[in-house]
Computed example of a mutant assay.
Amino acid sequence: MTTINRQIHLVSRPTGEATADNFKLVEATVPDELQDGQVLVRHHYLSLDPYMRGRMNDTKSYTAPQALNEVMGGGTVGEVVASKNSGFAVGDKVVGMGGWQEYQLLSGDLRGTLRKVSTEHVPLQAYLGAVGMPGVTAWYGLTQIIAPKEGNTVLVSAASGAVGTVVGQLAKVRGARAVGIAGGPEKCRFVTEELGFDACIDYKQHTDLKSLSQALKQACPNGIDGVFENVGGLGLDAALQRMNAFGRIALCGMIAGYNGEPIPLQQPQLLLTNRLRLEGFIVSEHMELWPQALTELATLVGTGKLKYRESIADGLAAAPEAFLGLLKGRNFGKQLVKLI
């Protein structure tokens, strides 16, 4: 019996905000017989991440744009359901970049494209979140750029998201004070009461620079030593006003401008007068550090010392709307799509 592989393709590029019309659900078939060296993976979960919005544009960036009329790219976890590759057996749990589809057929040397993982202590879907790319992103920006010392104050924007939740907890492990910015009282309570941040500011209650800067002053009485920036815009402007000399900014994302909006800094001179270090980074360019990061993250998750939360959409067809909701902050924690 022929197996149908449902896929979501990017069929048009957005002008301004992305819409569901930019995507199309299509069907393809899975070969009945594999060739030597091939592996067939049935995806269990699909990862939705903010970086995907940038790839929808046909503009120069750190990676090639998403091709039109092809499977939308993205991280996946799943199970090997057929194999003619000596490195993988039926039943192996794997993580890869399978894209927005239910199955993926891979061929040849799969080193670096498909990785076997253990679910003995870490749930499979966590390899797309706290023990996956978002977790390593948090680990790299915190440890390699901010490098907090005990007693430092670290500010995290989008603190209830997949990356931000990990940043604050890793900062606490290192003896730093963790302060988050999140949207709404429920998210802020989660950040402080469940994750252990020292404070969390609801940006929806502070919609101008003066108000947000004052809130940061109260939450960070000793100033800010490190900023993990996921959003840009008003929050970064307010943080710059409160940073201590020689502070470090790990620039991970600028979601405030993902739809093409300008996001100028209001007081860029503060970078100079406070001798601040601002460094953008792309975590996939630092693969040599992934094993070290994943070892720490898996240990913390496996022992219950690193907590996380997930928003799960049901079924591949729900992926576009879930993705659009992610861009508007409707998700709570890591946004996943359950495919099986």
Rank of each mutant, 00 (worst) to 15 (best):
G184Y: 04
K172L: 15
V90Y: 07
K84W: 04
I145K: 00
V166Y: 05
L128S: 11
T113P: 05
G168D: 12
L114K: 00
T113E: 13
R174L: 14
Y103N: 08
A159L: 02
D109E: 14
L170R: 07
S83Y: 11
T143E: 10
V156G: 07
P134C: 12
T113A: 12
Q169W: 02
G183E: 04
K172T: 03
T153I: 10
G96K: 01
G112K: 03
F190D: 03
G91I: 15
S107H: 06
A176Y: 04
I145S: 05
R189L: 00
I146H: 01
K187N: 00
G87A: 11
E186I: 08
A158S: 14
I145Q: 02
R111C: 05
K93V: 09
V154Y: 11
I181S: 01
G175A: 12
G135T: 03
E120Y: 07
G161D: 13
G161F: 13
L142Y: 09
V95T: 15
S118R: 05
A147Q: 05
K187G: 04
G98R: 04
A171C: 12
V117F: 13
Y140S: 05
A176H: 04
P148W: 09
A176E: 12
V80A: 13
M97V: 08
G99N: 09
V90C: 10
S83F: 14
A130Y: 07
V90L: 11
W139P: 06
S157N: 06
A171F: 11
A162D: 00
W139G: 04
A158Y: 05
S157M: 11
G161M: 13
V95Q: 15
G112N: 02
G164A: 10
L170T: 07
G183T: 04
A158Q: 05
S118K: 10
K149Y: 10
A176N: 02
G96P: 02
L114M: 03
T137D: 11
V95F: 12
R189E: 09
M97I: 11
G168A: 15
I146L: 09
V117E: 14
G135D: 07
A171Y: 08
I181W: 11
L105H: 03
Q169R: 00
A178G: 02
N85S: 09
V166E: 08
R174V: 01
F190S: 08
M97T: 03
G96M: 00
G151L: 13
L114I: 00
A176W: 09
A126K: 07
